[in-house]
């Protein structure tokens, strides 16, 4: 039941346009015509590459900075630590749309419109990741960190050589969630990117499917949807074990 729409999407994208209306799952013949049309009309390959670059950079940034800030908030002693934590927590309650316009103005001032920087840099730090890392690091015994200090580790080495290898579930969870969110993001790229060569896949596909360039050809639209969903599906199947495990074990405590 759950999987039926996916199966139909896949099979319909491979079917001739004339058979789509019947909603049959098994097409009479398999054709890649829809994909061919798609490839001819829009630079979907380039968009895929853009999406991979953007989502990977964002994910890496979130993991690196999130763990650094999470570590500082959970293990370092400094004045105002908890205040900073609550401010970060507070930013989670702000809807994206409130910051949308100020962020756009910033991008214009920085001259980042129509560059990768606009897609990547604003997303590299993320309150959710910081909080997840903070909570996860709190569950790691202080003695382990002390032992590392005595062995000669600085704070960065503690984070990346001691804590990271022992936080795989957290890293994978945050990684997947961030990657998916970044991959699926449409609104922000629509605002800051106009150059087709820099567009991410969802942006391009949305413009293509909704924007009218598909010329109401349902098969082609479906083909673009398949290509859009495929990487995430593959990633999810690959990391499913970690994903479920860490969702179950590292939810927000306290």
């Amino acid at each position: 039941m759950f999987i039926y729409p996916f199966v139909w999407m896949l099979s319909a994208s491979l079917a001739p346009e004339s058979e789509l209306a019947t909603l049959t799952v098994i097409p009479s013949e398999i054709t890649f015509e829809n994909y061919q049309v798609l490839l001819d009309k829009i630079p979907i390959g380039r968009a895929l590459l853009n999406s991979v670059i953007v989502a990977s950079s964002v994910t890496l940034g979130v993991l690196v900075f999130g763990s650094m800030i999470g570590y500082a908030l959970s293990r370092l002693e400094f004045r105002g630590r908890d205040t900073i934590f609550y401010i970060i927590l507070f930013t989670m309650t702000l809807p994206f749309h409130i910051t949308l316009i100020p962020n756009y103005i910033l991008m214009v001032k920085f001259g980042w419109v129509d560059t990768y920087a606009a897609l990547i840099i604003p997303y590299m730090i993320n309150a959710f990741a910081i909080i997840m890392f903070r909570q996860y690091f709190k569950s790691i015994p202080q003695d382990l960190i002390d032992a590392a200090k005595i062995d000669g580790c600085g704070e960065l080495r503690i984070i990346f050589q001691i804590l990271w290898p022992n936080s795989i579930p957290a890293l994978v969870t945050i990684g997947i969630i961030t990657f998916m969110a970044s991959w699926n993001e449409v609104l922000w790229p629509l605002i800051v990117i106009r150059d087709e060569q820099l567009m991410t896949m969802p942006q391009l596909v949305t413009l293509f499917a909704v924007g009218g360039r598909a010329e109401s050809q349902l098969g082609v639209k479906l083909a673009s949807a398949v290509l859009l969903a495929l990487p995430i599906l593959v990633a999810y199947m690959f990391f499913q074990k970690y994903f479920i495990q860490s969702m179950a074990s590292s939810g927000l405590k306290e």
Binding site: P141, D143, L144, D146, P165
Partner: peptide, 10 residues
Amino acid sequence: MVFQNYALYP
């Protein structure tokens, strides 16, 4: 230093 809970790197 030797710790109570060993503090070995897992």
